[in-house]
Design a binder for these strands. Structure first.
Lengths: 121, 121
DNA sequence: ACAATAACCGAAAAAAGATTCGGTAAGCAT
DNA sequence: ATGCTTACCGAATCTTTTTTCGGTTATTGT
């Protein structure tokens, strides 16, 4: 896992939260696991826009920081399952709230985005 | 304002929310304005870790996407004040929730972070 | 005249983050 | 034996974001 050159201020709660679930796909991964999609390959099929590699990396971080836990059976075909820890579950209400806010205002934001894109051509 | 090469999916609420207040300092800026610190130079003095430039840029984005509004008096010394719109105010509860989550778990996350850093030396 | 300040912008450079690609190991089916 | 899948990792590359730096404009205080 990459170490930053510029130190991060973990006394700010928002920064701590961003560290845990701020990656591009971490929210989606937490959502997928919450829905019972808990094997890496299945998560990859669920989140089609993300590469397998980034899912692996973000799973590793979520695991390291304790949002999910890993249940790997040795043997074959190497069944690995991830599930939310109680810490991971405590994030879900925030994700729901963010998702609700975003869906409520998505049309407005999309409209502004279109304006931006047409201005920059 | 930079235009992305990889298209972003604004049908996902979380992605929309991240677009609005996902930047490194946007949450802090919204918090500052909410506390009545509403002139660029004052925000810069309040958020000492951020460069003046990034505050300008993120103010411009927050303005463009309608979270804040600008009240500039021409004349001098060019008094510009930003204040939250109702859209901007609607973000505050989410910021509070994230901040609370982060502060609740900051010791745990910091401890994991320390472990990571000592392992990587 | 000259320094100081406020707001703001462009562009280069650095840092952080995501993606692509090629590889490992292990077992199953053909 | 060959190809398939699952899980995972390293490294190069590309994209995105942030920072740094050097400007502009206009006004006030000395």
């Amino acid at each position: 896992m990459y170490t930053k050159k510029i130190e991060e201020d973990l006394d700010c709660g928002i920064r701590v939260a961003a560290k845990m679930f701020g990656g591009k796909w971490k929210c989606c991964i937490l959502d997928a696991i919450n829905r019972g999609i808990n094997r890496p390959a299945d998560i990859g099929r669920y989140i089609t826009d993300a590469s397998a590699r980034v899912i692996e990396m973000q799973l590793a971080e979520l695991l390291f920081f304790g949002a999910i836990e890993k249940c790997a059976e040795e043997g074959f075909p190497k069944r690995t399952e991830y599930r939310l820890t109680s810490l991971g579950e405590s994030i879900l209400p925030i994700l729901e709230q963010m998702d609700r806010w975003g869906l409520t205002h998505s049309e407005f934001i999309k409209e502004r985005q279109r304006e931006l894109e047409s201005a920059e051509l």
